[in-house]
């Protein structure tokens, strides 16, 4: 006897997914990163809407808002404004722009950026691998959680900057100490978000997998990790923000290259336009890296987006 598909096809109502309400633990140091949890997905959806031409008005407003700020800065700097905030030593946007173009053809400028990116890559890469591994262990095993959690609870509230003296004392090279500080900054948000995601695994899905013959390893791979992924990705994005925050702190205080060193040495050498260039480059690179993390992980979260779209 054949199966009648007809009447069912018509009833394509939508069941809201319960995965949309995931809270996320945010690292204390993560003041720079405000996007939280699966709001990220919402933000992504919003962004894709904003790309529609129908929203060009809003884009104009946003650009205009920035232009106004630059103009105020220019007027204040040119007129040496001194209303509590002192602008005598602040270079105006034209000077900064000229200097930026000059820097673009200087090799050392790229060397600074390259050094920072290298530190981020090493530290963040380590934090991702170790953070997710620790998080999964803690989320799956009470014993592992009991061993690891005390360390996290004690170390997490210590800002990366506070680690600098000890890192310099303990690490063999300056490079290692900066990488270590950056690594620490990225580690905690990644661990905690992973734990959170893993602990949220719906019991019914684990049961379903078991009754379909899945081993523990298969359950980890097919159920626990994909289920935790939205939370892990949120942790990765926050971790990237904190990594930059920590890197800069490390580079300002020690180091010979790096965009943080570039910014701080500009201050000590009285090359003020370079301060602002350094700041903008830091902001730009930080945003770029966070964007890369989100975009890189987006294909893995396609199922969630589909649910939100329908």
């Amino acid at each position: 006897m054949s199966v009648k598909p007809g009447p069912f096809q018509a009833s394509s109502a939508v069941v809201p997914s319960s995965t949309g309400e995931r809270g996320v633990i945010q690292a204390d140091g993560a003041a720079t990163e405000t996007v939280v949890g699966t709001d990220a997905v919402g933000a992504a959806v919003e962004a894709s809407h904003a790309r529609l031409p129908a929203n060009w008005r809003r884009y104009l407003v946003r650009i205009a808002a920035l232009v106004v700020a630059v103009m105020i800065w220019h007027l204040a700097a040119v007129n040496d404004l001194n209303l509590y905030l002192r602008f005598e030593n602040v270079p105006n946007p034209v000077v900064v722009g000229t200097e930026f173009i000059a820097q673009l053809s200087s090799q050392t400028f790229y060397l600074h950026i390259l050094h920072s990116m290298e530190r981020i890559a090493i530290a963040y890469g380590l934090a991702v691998v170790i953070g997710i591994a620790l998080g999964v262990m803690m989320g799956r095993s009470r014993f592992a959680e009991d061993i690891i959690l005390p360390y996290i609870e004690i170390l997490r509230p210590i800002p990366a900057v506070a680690w600098i003296p000890l890192a310099i004392l303990m690490m063999p090279t300056e490079q290692a100490s900066i990488v270590f500080i950056t690594f620490l900054g990225a580690l905690f948000p990644i661990v905690l978000n992973t734990v959170h995601g893993v602990e949220q695994t719906p019991k019914v899905l684990v049961r379903a997998a078991r009754s379909l013959g899945a081993s523990n390893a298969a359950i980890l791979r097919h159920v626990v990790l994909p289920g935790a992924l939205p939370s892990i990705v949120a942790g990765l994005a926050i971790g990237m923000g904190v990594a930059w925050f920590s890197l800069l702190a490390g580079e300002i205080i020690s180091g010979q290259y790096g965009i943080g060193y570039f910014t701080w040495s500009a201050y000590t050498l009285v090359e003020y336009p370079k301060i602002i260039i350094g700041m903008l480059v830091i902001g730009g690179l930080g945003s770029l890296c966070t964007l890369l993390v989100r975009k890189g992980c987006a294909p893995l979260l396609r199922w969630q987006k589909e649910a939100g779209r329908s």
Partner: peptide, 30 residues
């Protein structure tokens, strides 16, 4: 639990990150 006893749950038991096809293929894969 074992694959000789298949289970259909009340609701929300499909793997949301797998397509319909991959959900059904999961048992044979295992």
């Amino acid at each position: 639990p074992g694959p000789d006893r298949g289970m259909v749950f009340q609701q929300h038991s499909l793997f949301p990150w797998k397509t319909v096809k991959d959900n059904v293929a999961f048992g044979p894969l295992m």
